[in-house]
Amino acid sequence: MPISPNIIDTYSETDILASAANILEEKLTQSPAFSSIAETKSFLQFKLTSLGHETFCIMHLNSQHHLIEFEELFRGTINAAAVYPREVVKTVLVHNSAAVILVHNHPSGIAEPSQSDKDITHKLKEALALIDVPVLDHVIVGRDCVSFAERGVL
């Protein structure tokens, strides 16, 4: 069905792109479960690839690994974001998460994990284990995605 030129003229390009992004996000989050690494990577690349700052996020999952909420917890600069385990545990309890996937991006485009990425993953995994919430993965998003679970380092 063709769209009337008058309708298009009433909306800005920004409005149209924002609407399209909302539709795509809704479609991606209605997935039955985030149980495959490929599915998770696609969702995360859609969410984080274009950001010019580092952000640390968490995917709160229920017991069937359906997404409860995708939450940005910490926002950083072009190459770092401070992450506080206490705040991660608090938000996991608030959302009543049964499992989580940790996520952050590297605005440089290079998704290779640093030693500090590995260290914070280990700390968060230990902290969340105290409240019986497993960390299913930590995914770093750049031009590609690196999954700690896929690499066997989780």
Score class of each variant (00 low, 15 high):
38 A>V: 14
107 P>M: 07
20 A>C: 07
7 I>D: 04
118 K>E: 13
146 V>C: 01
63 S>I: 14
89 V>L: 02
60 H>V: 08
112 E>W: 11
106 H>D: 04
90 K>N: 13
12 S>M: 05
10 T>W: 11
52 G>Y: 09
8 I>L: 15
145 C>G: 03
45 Q>D: 15
80 A>W: 10
145 C>H: 03
90 K>E: 15
15 D>W: 04
35 S>T: 14
55 T>Q: 08
76 G>Y: 04
3 I>Y: 02
7 I>P: 06
82 A>N: 07
59 M>K: 02
139 V>G: 06
19 S>D: 10
58 I>H: 10
46 F>H: 12
42 S>A: 15
124 L>A: 04
126 E>D: 11
34 F>T: 06
2 P>Q: 09
73 L>I: 08
139 V>N: 00
153 V>K: 05
61 L>N: 01
89 V>P: 05
5 P>E: 10
93 L>P: 06
122 H>S: 11
51 L>W: 14
65 H>N: 12
111 A>Y: 00
87 E>R: 08
78 I>W: 10
52 G>P: 11
21 A>W: 02
49 T>F: 09
17 L>P: 06
14 T>V: 15
37 I>Q: 07
51 L>H: 14
6 N>T: 15
94 V>G: 03
31 S>K: 12
18 A>N: 09
84 Y>V: 15
40 T>Q: 07
86 R>G: 03
95 H>C: 05
15 D>C: 07
72 E>L: 07
7 I>Y: 07
20 A>P: 04
142 G>K: 05
96 N>R: 14
108 S>L: 03
56 F>L: 02
107 P>C: 00
106 H>V: 10
103 V>N: 12
5 P>T: 04
21 A>Y: 09
79 N>S: 06
8 I>F: 09
80 A>N: 04
103 V>R: 08
55 T>M: 05
123 K>F: 08
58 I>Y: 07
90 K>M: 06
97 S>E: 13
138 H>K: 00
13 E>G: 14
143 R>H: 14
142 G>T: 00
50 S>G: 12
48 L>C: 11
44 L>W: 07
58 I>M: 14
28 L>W: 00
23 I>A: 06
97 S>W: 01
9 D>V: 15
42 S>P: 08
11 Y>E: 15
121 T>Y: 09
19 S>P: 04
8 I>V: 15
17 L>K: 11
22 N>S: 06
145 C>F: 03
94 V>Y: 05
59 M>L: 15
68 I>A: 10
6 N>V: 15
81 A>M: 01
113 P>D: 06
20 A>Y: 13
19 S>W: 08
119 D>C: 01
83 V>E: 02
98 A>Y: 06
22 N>R: 12
151 R>E: 14
140 I>G: 01
75 R>W: 02
65 H>C: 14
28 L>N: 01
61 L>D: 00
94 V>Q: 10
99 A>G: 00
143 R>Y: 12
137 D>A: 01
36 S>V: 02
61 L>H: 06
